[in-house]
Design a protein around this nucleic acid. Structure first.
Length: 326
DNA sequence: CGCTTTTGACCAGCGC
DNA sequence: GCGCTGGTCAAAAGCG
């Protein structure tokens, strides 16, 4: 987003001209003055004073809100700078990651050898982890990218296998939070454009709601896994944990909708919402794509803010104290 | 008939 | 070694 644009919009969105043109001193409607001048003169003076006071108050409110918006924009610019730094660092890290691709793979951390667990997982840029666009659902994704794990090289010998595996795993794990209808007990509502096959369900210790395990069924060699579980705190929130990167493109809409359960039209009406990891790995993206990425990032941020009760409360209190209750 | 889901069993890691 | 826990397998059932 362009903060210059935002600043430029402040006068548009916050110029609350409540008093209207008739509130100006010395410019009353001529026809009314002719007809009711004597009768209305004292009352009009009263109204003009009131309107002037209202105008001053609104102007003050406008100034305060503008200040708030400027502060918000400044904070946004600060955060954006940090994100840019992280992206640059990730780009450097990704280059070294890619060059070390020839050796053993991260899939070697798998506990059990399986016929389908041959190391075919590539380190291709992961497809967009998207927020499901089903009606009324709100999703926020959080990705832990390779840059956020210090030791991600799977070729380095490591004394602690456990720590090493955790680091490798953490480097490819991302979470997606989806607001779902609490009456819908299904864990299938986390639609992200990919085809998933459920292969297990387990009740975990820290959460009474069962956790469902999914595997990417679109490409047999794709080893991406997804865990979906309702949040223990808020059962309307589904937490989808993605493990690994898809080594293929997202299935076309037709194919995605051919699946019996995942055939929800809304499920494929997914925006190509980028997550940080994807942005970090796609420096070569075109300018148009970058603009779209930024737009989606802002949408995600807005969604996050609107879901934050603290933010809402602060906004309500800020506005309620300044907008008169007629 | 082929694919997906369900669900009990099994396995490995970890703490005691 | 034992029990707990998370993750996975695989047979059976369901569905279009």
């Amino acid at each position: 987003m362009d903060e210059q644009w935002m600043i430029g919009q402040t006068s548009l969105s916050l110029s609350l001209n409540v008093g209207g043109p008739t509130a100006r001193r010395g410019a009353p409607p001529v026809s009314k003055v002719l007809v009711e001048e004597d009768f209305m003169s004292s009352r009009k003076n009263h109204e003009v004073e009131a309107l002037e006071a209202e105008l001053r108050r609104v102007g003050e409110e406008n100034r305060r809100l503008s200040d708030m918006l400027r502060a918000l924009v400044a904070k946004y610019a600060d955060l954006q700078g940090k994100v840019s730094g992280m992206m640059a660092a990730a780009n450097n890290h990704h280059q070294s990651w890619t060059t070390s691709e020839g050796g053993s793979s991260a899939s070697a951390i798998r506990k059990r050898p399986r016929s389908d667990s041959l190391d075919t997982a590539s380190r291709n840029p992961s497809p967009p982890l998207t927020a499901a666009g089903s009606s009324g659902r709100l999703a926020v994704s959080v990705t832990v990218g390779p840059d956020q794990a210090e030791c991600t090289s799977v070729q380095e010998p490591c004394n602690s296998k456990r720590v090493h595996a955790d680091e490798v795993k953490a480097s490819r794990v991302s979470k997606l939070y989806v607001h779902a209808d609490p009456s819908d007990l299904s864990l299938q509502v986390v639609k992200d454009g990919y085809q998933w096959r459920k292969y297990g369900q387990k009740v975990t210790k820290d959460n009474p709601c069962p956790r469902a395990y999914f595997r990417c069924s679109f490409a047999p060699s794709c080893q991406v896994k997804k865990k979906v579980q309702r949040s223990a705190e808020d059962k309307t929130v589904l937490v989808a944990t993605y493990d690994g990167d898809h080594n293929h493109a997202p299935p076309p809409k037709q194919q995605s909708s051919s699946s019996r359960k995942s055939g929800d039209a809304a499920a494929v009406r997914v925006s190509a919402a980028p997550v940080l990891a994807q942005q970090q790995r796609k420096q070569e993206a075109s300018t148009a794509e970058q603009v779209a990425d930024r737009k989606n990032l802002v949408e995600q941020m807005a969604a996050t803010l609107t879901r934050d009760p603290v933010f809402k409360a602060a906004l309500v209190s800020a506005l309620s104290g300044r907008i008169p209750v007629a």
